[in-house]
Structures are given as C-alpha cells and as structure tokens.
Simulated scan of single mutants.
Amino acid sequence: MLIAPLINHIRPGALPTVFGLSGYSGAGTIPMTDPDGRPTTAPKVPPATLMGGVKPYSLTDHIHEREAGFHLAELLSSGAAPLKVAFVPAVAPWFSGIIATVSIPLTGKMTAREVVALFEEKYKGDKLVRIVKDVPQLPDIEGKHTWTVGGFQVHSEGDRVVIVGGLDNLLKGAATQCIQNLNLALGYDEYTGIPVE
C-alpha cells in the first residue's frame, strides 16, 4: 500500500526499500506447556529479550519481498520488468502495531504535494485508509481498524520520496482484513461489522 500509488513513478531498475518495525505479536508464537501441563503458546520473541530495543531479522529474501513484488507487478503495464522490493523487518518491544518506512527512487522530480495527491486518488473512498500529514506513530495505529499513511517527504533534489505507513497487525493486518474479505466473498458491503472511524 505504501508503494502502489507510485508504481508508475519508480525509477526503472531501482529498488524501493521498506524498513518495517513490528510489535512482538507479529513475530508469532511457539507452542509450550503451562505450569499445569496444559498446552499454550508464548511469544516467539519475548519482549524482555529485546531489552527495550529492536531486533532486525530476515535481512534479505523475506517472503514479503516476493509477495509485494508479485502483487505490485500486476499494477504495471504489460511488458514492464518485474518489480523488486527490499524489505528489512525488525521486532519491537510493543505488543501490536507495524510501522513501515519506504524509500522510493523516482523517475523524475516530484513534490510532496504531488505524492499526497497520488495517495488520495489511489485510496479515494476506502473507509479504512487514513492519509495524514505527520508521520504516523504507534498511538495512531494500535487498536485501530485502519491503515494510516503520512510523513510524506521528498528529498531536496526531488528524486526520492520517503513515506511512513502503519496498521495494527492483529486488526487491519489480520482480523479486520479477514472480515473485509469474507464480506466481499459473501456479497455483503465490504465494511459490514467493522467499526469505521
């Protein structure tokens, strides 16, 4: 979602790079047994092991690189070269919420205002997309059913843009998205049962 509005403005051969910070719930869980012998789970990356910092992982070849490149390539005109995306994830010491920062080399000079206009056009009418001026922070996304994007900044030479987006991985990244997909598959309004903020 951070890259799609700019799909036709990415410098050919360039590599959009996404740095993602995910709460430790996004790292998954491992099976274990509680003190009473019952099966349970525990965070794969317990927050105490992060010591207040972040833990980068899967520094290359993360599955999301291939997923993003595949789906973004579908937006390109036929005959265009496949799009590659670099994704560098890290686990953070909060529970839920993903904040991703993308750096995109551009084909030509653009202004931040032009970039915002592309995002407004691409996501017009989507009730679960919030476009804001400032860089989204954890309180803007945690516990929300929306994807929030903002902090649009263009390099002083106008040839590279940096944008920040975020969502709650347990809501918009999982449960909310599931409800949207079920609604669409069953012929209901996409937003049925989802609190629209």
Rank of each mutant, 00 (worst) to 15 (best):
A81D: 14
K55N: 10
G52R: 00
F87C: 09
A86M: 07
L106M: 05
R66F: 09
A100R: 10
L50E: 02
E67A: 13
E114G: 07
P47F: 06
P56F: 02
G125Y: 05
Y123Q: 09
Y123R: 01
R113I: 11
M51L: 13
L76A: 04
G97K: 09
A73M: 10
A42Q: 12
A68L: 15
E121D: 11
E67T: 15
P93V: 01
A73V: 00
A68C: 12
M51A: 13
E121K: 14
L106C: 07
V91A: 12
Y123T: 07
E114I: 06
E74G: 11
E65G: 07
G125N: 06
R113E: 15
A80D: 14
S78F: 09
E120G: 08
D126Q: 12
S78L: 12
K84V: 01
I104K: 05
A100W: 09
T111G: 13
A68K: 02
A90N: 02
A117H: 08
S103G: 07
T49R: 11
A73Y: 11
T40E: 06
K44R: 15
M51H: 13
E67Y: 15
T101Q: 12
S78Y: 12
L76K: 15
A73L: 05
M51F: 09
A81C: 05
V102D: 07
V102M: 05
F95P: 11
A117K: 13
L50T: 02
F70C: 09
A90S: 10
I63P: 11
F119E: 00
K124Q: 13
S58T: 10
E114F: 03
T101M: 05
W94R: 06
E114Y: 00
R113K: 15
R113Y: 04
A90L: 01
E74K: 15
V116A: 05
A48N: 12
P82R: 09
E65V: 04
R113P: 01
K44C: 08
P93D: 03
P89R: 08
P56L: 04
S103F: 01
K109L: 04
A68D: 12
V115N: 00
H62Q: 03
E121M: 04
S96W: 05
L75W: 07
L75A: 11
T101C: 04
S58L: 10
V85C: 03
S103N: 10
R113Q: 15
T107K: 15
P105I: 06
H64L: 14
E67N: 14
A80N: 12
K109C: 02
F70N: 13
P46F: 10
G69H: 03
G69P: 05
T107F: 01
S58D: 13
E65Y: 07
A42W: 07
T111C: 06
K55T: 03
G97F: 06
L106T: 07
I63E: 13
T107I: 13
K122L: 04
